[in-house]
Design a binder for these strands. Structure first.
Lengths: 332, 332
DNA sequence: TTGAAAGCGCTACCAC
DNA sequence: GTGGTAGCGCTTTCAA
């Protein structure tokens, strides 16, 4: 009979003290006689009491919950990111309130509204959502951290260091003798896709202005990698390196090349981005991103920002690491 | 100036009506004059008002939030499951409150307590947590659905149909001429691991009582698959089929066999469980589990159960599907 | 050190 | 149809 519905008043009554004292004990606030404290605590135990957090947050105007709004994404990324957030959140005594936005921008608004009064701040990842729509959806006054989202003036933002990663990989490809490097890009609306593409162009222009630059646009999935690579094969494969926008596209490329009997890395090198677990088993060279770290960092930045003093909004780049495996080994 | 902190009273004042009427409009409850409704709605728009849900849930005793407590797991499973839950939840107008429990059972209690008053029900996945500890942690009166957790008397429960899956795979191996099938099992504390192991034993006993039965215990990861397989190789590989407890173990087995120059599937067949994305690329035969469906179902069962009438607790099995690929093709 | 009481923002009951 | 108002369970002044 540990009544799941014991209230602070039940505790007060049983302990023989006032509601106020119970509250003080529970929050370690104010002075309270050790004996009183013991009384209260034992009443709490006896009743199996635990405070109603909705009530608490109503009266303190703080919920100790963080809203998390993520796109409907597949693969490991989602899980890793949430794992990181959860880790940091629970360390700080926060809970995560989750909501996926499906491509529909309208839903972002809805999700945000559904969280009003329920969260102390939000982490928003909306790589496809134009800055304007996002800003009009974000209630002002609500602390927010942007993850991998365009714009970000006025908010703290975290980003993957796409430029650093791609630059390192292109440099590596050039240094190992590749001359015709083609880039398979993700969708035009996707922020990461665009940054990676631009970084590829910039690095080529800077390091090898005389070499050809070529971008094939697709989407961030293996099917797209397959289609694009097949197109190259149909052209006679005028290429000696394929830099895919992410690992899934690289995977599509790899399988297609294998089926066509093209030697990797001797005839063509292949590189990806993300370092999904798959990459290791495919012996795929790629750029590793610390996604758990990204999630943790997002929560930490948010909590710090909620601390009251509004430190000026900054954009932080999440470091990447070049992972060289078999698919980009120098050709014989 | 859409003040993020407009309250229902601000709206009432601006609209020139009472708080009660505003509430009625917002909840579509009771009768309200269309003209009044318009007034109120335009005031709402003007103020950018959206209700404080903490307050609402305090007064209605319903939060429209579902607590989700999951183990700290890796791989795709987590993301897929949450995706399914989120999909079903948002369809019903519910939010997900997330919390990972790290192996520590103590944390389950903590997580549950942290959700008091914040959720209308919980979905708990704790394959490692003994039934007793779980029951004592679960506040009574709080609707709960168990996912892949031991026991489950008194609660709705969802499970993966481990028995059906393993039985189908063992049958397939026997039918394709395999005679010495060894099972690499997951950890003894893990419910799925035990069910799969038992199903292997039962099926062997039933279909091929004269053939040897052998179980090697490890954990559900690739490293363990590697270690166990290496042990078999060191023994001279007295085996023509390896039935791994899950895909990650199968992966470890596969890589180890490849390195040792053992022909798969000619010399040894390999099978896994889960059908992670990796499996397709490894051409690994496995059992497919619809994880998104499992997540959706969990939410639906929970919401139905919260509907007030306590339908008798049932355990539901989530169907699996035999996926035959290259690693179990009959030996020549 | 303790207690009484005023809200926090909202819903729902009851009276008009 | 509409408005007044009593709580929901908690924190937090303010007095005692």
């Amino acid at each position: 009979m540990s009544g799941s519905s014991a209230t602070i008043r039940d505790v007060a009554r049983l302990a023989g003290f006032s509601v106020a004292s119970v509250s003080r004990v529970l929050n370690n606030s104010g002075k309270v006689n050790p004996a009183t404290r013991e009384c209260v605590l034992s009443a709490v135990r006896e009743l199996g009491y635990s405070p109603n957090l909705a009530a608490r947050s109503l009266s303190t105007a703080r919920s100790h919950a963080i809203g998390v709004i993520l796109p409907d994404m597949h693969g490991e990324f989602f899980g890793e990111l949430v794992r990181g957030m959860d880790r940091a959140a629970s360390e700080h005594g926060y809970l995560l309130l989750l909501s996926n936005i499906h491509a529909d921008p309208q839903m972002a608004n809805h999700a945000l509204a559904a969280m009003r009064g329920l969260v102390d701040g939000v982490i928003l990842m909306a790589p496809q959502l134009p800055e304007m729509e996002r800003e009009s959806a974000l209630p002002q006054g609500l602390p927010a951290v942007l993850v991998n989202s365009p714009g970000g003036h006025g908010h703290h933002a975290l980003r993957i260091d796409n430029v650093g990663g791609v630059t390192a990989m292109v440099t590596h490809l050039l240094e190992t003798g590749r001359r015709t490097i083609v880039h398979l890009a993700g969708a035009r609306q996707n922020l990461d896709a665009m940054e990676r593409q631009q970084a590829y162009r910039d690095t080529m222009a800077r390091l090898a202005p005389d070499l050809p630059v070529r971008v094939l646009e697709g989407t961030f999935d293996d099917a797209s990698g397959t289609v694009l690579t097949q197109r190259l094969i149909d052209e006679g494969l005028p290429v000696d390196a394929i830099l895919a926008g992410n690992d899934m596209m690289a995977l599509g490329a790899l399988l297609t090349l294998r089926e066509a009997g093209v030697a990797v890395p001797d005839r063509v090198a292949v590189a990806g981005f993300d370092d999904v677990p798959l990459a290791r088993y495919l012996d795929l060279s790629t750029i590793s991103v610390d996604i758990v770290g990204l999630g943790m960092r997002a929560v930490e930045v948010l909590i710090a920002g909620m601390g009251g003093d509004a430190s000026p909004p900054r954009t932080e780049l999440n470091k990447t690491r070049l992972v060289l495996r078999g698919t980009t080994r120098p050709a014989c």
